[in-house]
Simulated assay, not measured.
Amino acid sequence: MTGNSTAHSAALRRKRRRERARTLAFLSPWLIGFGLFFAYPLASTVYFSFMKYDGFTAPVFSGLKNWDYVFNHYPFFWQGLRNTLWLVVVMVALRVAFGLGIGLLITKVKTGAGFFRTAFYLPYLAPPVAATMAFAFLLNPGTGPVDHLLGDLGLPQPGWFNDPSWSKPALTLLALWGIGDLMVIFMAALLDVPREQYEAAELDGAGAWQRFRYVTLPNISPILAFAVVTGVIQTMQYYTQAIVAGKVASGVIGGSGQQFEPGYPHGSTWTLPQLVYNLGFQRFDTGSACVVALVLFAVSMAVTSALLRRRSAFLLDGAALESED
Rank of each mutant, 00 (worst) to 15 (best):
A43E: 07
L42Q: 07
I220Y: 00
V303H: 06
L100M: 15
F260L: 14
A200R: 10
M51G: 10
R213S: 09
F161V: 01
A131W: 00
E324K: 04
T304W: 02
L321T: 09
G231S: 12
S28E: 13
L150A: 02
F314A: 06
V46N: 01
M133E: 07
V244K: 03
G154W: 10
E196K: 01
A10F: 14
V276N: 01
G142F: 12
P164D: 02
V291Y: 01
P262S: 06
Y40M: 15
Q237I: 02
G159I: 13
A130S: 13
R14M: 03
D163G: 05
R82C: 13
S5N: 14
W160H: 04
G55W: 03
V193E: 02
A131E: 00
Y40A: 13
L190C: 11
T304C: 11
L191D: 13
M1A: 12
P123A: 01
L224T: 01
Q258A: 12
V60D: 10
Q258Y: 08
Q282H: 14
H73R: 15
L150T: 02
L316I: 07
T235I: 05
F71Y: 13
V88P: 12
D54K: 05
L87F: 15
G251K: 00
A25M: 11
E324L: 11
A320P: 05
L139G: 00
V184P: 00
Y214H: 13
K168G: 03
K247V: 00
L321D: 09
S288H: 04
Q157K: 07
